[in-house]
Design a protein around this nucleic acid. Structure first.
Lengths: 340, 340
DNA sequence: GAATTTGTTGGTTGCGCTACCATGGCCGCC
DNA sequence: GGCGGCCATGGTAGCGCAACCAACAAATTC
């Protein structure tokens, strides 16, 4: 008898199941992966053996043998932002139903980290990838192009997606809000946001606002920028600082609802009347934005839907269905409320 | 020449790197996994070859060969709740630093789903597991016990953890809030929450409150229960419905801050004066709870910290360090603010 | 009734990597 | 100077599964 060269993991394997069911291992494999290709009687025997032994398929062996996996990396810039959570939720729901497993990667708004993450995650031979954003390091782009599996870039809409693209135009969203504020009669309109270099989608919203102001012939200003992660607390502080620095402002467009809701709550506490003293607007359409006093004017982005659509398109391509256009604009909705 | 039996994936393999570097494959493996065990010259050659060829390690082959992986499943009941997101963030941060990869599982508060999830996730030969909660189906318990790798049950504190346990006592948290309300002079105290059968940790907080009321000789009431996912909107509605059904109430303890903040905002809009007409208290310590008018009395739970500690303890055990006590009470902090 | 097709089952091989053991060179020691 | 020990490197086999091909039985065709 040959020397046992290696301790094996001790887990129940396909072979164990096959022995118990009195069939060949490959038959068990088929019974599990393509039940229709096996007779009903055998299938029943196999199922009995599987549950009797508590067999669990070894994902590594399967993936290695078939050179295919059911892993789908999802790369986002941040987890502390409710927006990405909702997107991930949408993705997770769709993938799980189809038996795929998302692998979360967090770039922390750093393109170098993104590049390393992509390299690592490609080691899982993913069936496809979902990446937030359309700005990548050149190396990332090369890796992704070279990989040649389905890929969806999400959140924003871009001219030249690597493969597929699901998102909305943040420039147009900012422009829409700008037009709304102009129509309402505000004349001194400012933008408040943080880390716009990194959060370049917020910067795009600023750019849209700026275009609207230019078109209306109104005063244009650089954004009022702070250096902290968005939060309600920070939004409140930014409101106070900005009104002190530029008391002539009569309307403020915040980069997102976290900031705007914080500003609204702070205004209330400080006795600043919104919108009489200053109008406040946000972006995202978080639930709470509808519940403040006054409720917040904002732009609603279909966050969960972006995740769902992206996941569906990816699965469509993986499974070889036709999957519609490569680029989907999910749009946005201006929700006009009493804060403007 | 032998017939090529199978299309191989086409990716760069260890062997390719070895050929280019002029060494044996096993040496490359060592140079990458345990750089110290290889001479500096060889290491440099290997590194050159790796980057020149763009080699990415195949995770499946590695895991299969070594019967060990760097996967750590994290099983939570919900992703729509900010609480679990923060826990996951804490986990992710610690794991990523150490080169481990979390795999997210979502039970949707269903113990059967949990059981199936555990079975599937065990197929990844995880290095360890993190599971939210201490209530599991018997089958889940068997699977986990049988697996014999490090495991942390998080969020709540339990008498008989399967392995390790990081959390806080929700009963004591509820009791603490109850005592606070009693001390403040409230005499008709109610509890509002949703789906308490599933969200049994919220039910534990109710139980704590109930104990405090009993100890003080005050009226005890069943919880005012609704059948929806917690949200600010639902909290506002629950406030109105409850005050109509039981106008004698002078204090309300909400199952979480989402509900309580919603109630606070709704009260403000409806002209219900807090805390004069009714006191409002929450649980979790979300950032926004400090910013409402009046700010919300709540119990702060160290959510991100739970994730970090759990991940650290797990890694400690995986890497064979001593890792302190098996059970860690992270505690909580009563934050008394103007809403009570 | 023979030939062909169809459907079900099994044998063999290899996916890419690492565990285990073997080898050979170098050092220090008595 | 011979021995043992240590270090760096290599050879080989096997992890558990599925792809591929082969074999065979049953059903269908003419």
């Amino acid at each position: 008898m040959a020397v046992r060269r290696r301790a094996h993991s001790g887990a129940v394997t396909l072979k164990d199941v096959a022995e118990r069911a009195g069939v060949a291992p490959i038959t068990v494999s088929r019974a599990l992966n393509a039940p229709d290709s096996v007779s009903a009687a055998l299938r029943a025997q196999v199922e009995e053996a599987v549950s009797a032994l508590g067999y669990v398929r070894n994902q590594y062996a399967g993936a290695l043998a078939s050179a295919a996996s059911r892993i789908i990396p999802v790369i986002v810039p941040s987890l502390s932002n409710a927006v990405f959570i909702e997107v991930i939720q949408g993705i997770q729901q769709v993938l799980e139903e189809a038996g795929y497993q998302p692998l979360l990667g967090n770039t922390q708004y750093d393109l170098d980290r993104e590049s390393k993450l992509v390299a690592t995650l490609l080691g899982w031979s993913p069936a496809g990838l979902i990446v937030a954003g359309m700005r990548h390091a050149e190396r990332t782009r090369t890796l992704l192009r070279g990989y040649g599996r389905p890929l969806v870039e999400i959140m924003e809409l871009g001219a030249r997606p690597i493969d597929m693209n699901v998102g909305l135009s943040h420039v147009r969203a900012g422009e829409t809000m700008g037009q709304h504020l102009v129509e309402r009669g505000y004349r001194q309109i400012g933008f408040i946001g943080g880390r716009l270099k990194q959060d370049y989608r917020a910067a795009q919203r600023y750019r849209g606002l700026d275009q609207a102001l230019a078109a209306a012939g109104l005063a244009r200003r650089p954004p009022f920028e702070h250096d902290q992660k968005s939060s309600a607390q920070v939004g409140g502080n930014a409101l106070m600082a900005t009104l002190e620095a530029a008391p002539e402002l009569d309307a403020l467009f915040f980069a997102n609802d976290d900031l705007a809701v914080g500003a609204l709550l702070r205004a209330q506490r400080e006795g600043i009347v919104v919108p009489a003293r200053v109008a406040i607007a946000g972006f995202n359409g978080l639930e709470i934005s509808a519940l403040t006093t006054p409720p917040l004017t904002t732009i609603v982005s279909p966050r969960q839907q972006i995740g769902e659509i992206a996941a569906r398109k990816l699965l469509g391509r993986i499974q070889g269905h036709a999957s519609g256009p490569a680029r989907i604009d999910v749009g946005f909705r201006l929700e006009v409320r009493a804060s403007t």
